[in-house]
Write a protein that binds this DNA or RNA. Structure first.
Lengths: 171, 171
DNA sequence: TGCTAATTTCATTTTTTTTTGAAAGCTTTG
DNA sequence: CAAAGCTTTCAAAAAAAAATGAAATTAGCA
């Protein structure tokens, strides 16, 4: 038996909700794309952000007119960032999604998932540089040494500061 | 009369410089792509970063095996971020490029050029949301109000914190 | 000023990323 | 335990982004 989703309160009412929803989607599409996320991820989050009720995937598909595959992938991404969570709905076997709205935590997660790994491999790459500094030309050595030192400072500062940043956010 | 570029010191010497150069290019290609910049921009900066001598565009093209168009575009981007500057070479009418290596300043510039404008338009979008809050359902109002408030705090915190961030960097 | 080298622009091509949708894989329940 | 519903996966298609290279423009020199 298929589930007929009862229309939630805000959907019945008015054009203005639809407008708000559109603004929200627009907002998060841009926000997310600044962070390198595909449009669909922003759309899904934007839809959920102003939804009082948890939404199942097939509704997301229908409302955003995206494919099942995209929705599934997008939700997977959002889950891994802990930007959405599923909420249990009695008598319905579909997963219902709800937006996580504590941006501080979202941000911390984003840094942990997307930035930190890159910083680690950057450090390895710098080590490799050091093992390879041209050693013939002594004058040159100093030049390279300084440049490498700068890279070290950059990565060190980044990997300290970025995780700390989330804590600074007061919201 | 065409200019024959005299081979700079580091080019003659050794495999190890070539290796360092490759690591550098690799490093910045990844770094830049985290910031949403195309590969070519990272390549150019990576090449310049470990070059003692300023390099003219045609040499960049030759060494990186990229097209003139790409090089020109990439340098334009880097110039706009103040990540490179041209240095005058007497008796040579080509522009010679040199990498700007103060990351603090680069970072500040990046935020000013790439982030701040987006934050501004985000704020406008939030204002539009406020003008459109569903007004029929009073219970609903509160919900939307809270969500909008969060977005405001997010954008406010971001546009304060991000520009300040560059100052915090100690390198 | 006219000539030539250097650079930029931009329509086209190539590459990369994202989306689609059908098939495979789970999971619940009758 | 079988059938139906929900979700994931993945090869192919579509869309978006980046690179190419030739033509147009600009700038320096003679």
């Amino acid at each position: 038996m298929a589930y007929s989703t009862p229309k939630p309160v805000q959907q019945k009412n008015s054009i203005s909700f639809k407008e708000l929803e559109i603004e929200s989607i627009d907002f998060f599409v841009r926000m997310m794309s600044m962070l390198g996320m595909p449009k669909s991820v922003g759309e899904i989050y934007g839809l959920l952000y102003f939804s009082r009720d948890p939404i199942p995937m097939d509704q997301i598909v229908k409302r955003l007119r995206i494919s099942l595959g995209t929705a599934s992938q997008g939700l997977k991404t959002l889950r891994s960032l802990k930007a959405v969570r599923t909420s249990y709905m009695p008598g319905d076997r579909r997963d219902h999604y709800i937006a996580e709205t504590e941006f501080r935590r979202l941000f911390a997660n984003f840094i942990k998932e997307e930035i930190t790994p890159h910083m680690e491999s950057a450090k390895e790459r710098i080590e490799r540089m050091e093992s390879v500094i041209p050693s013939t030309d002594h004058h040159a050595d100093e030049f390279y040494q300084i440049r490498i030192e700068k890279l070290k400072k950059l990565t060190k500062a980044s990997s300290r500061l970025l995780p700390a940043l989330a804590g600074l956010l007061k919201f």
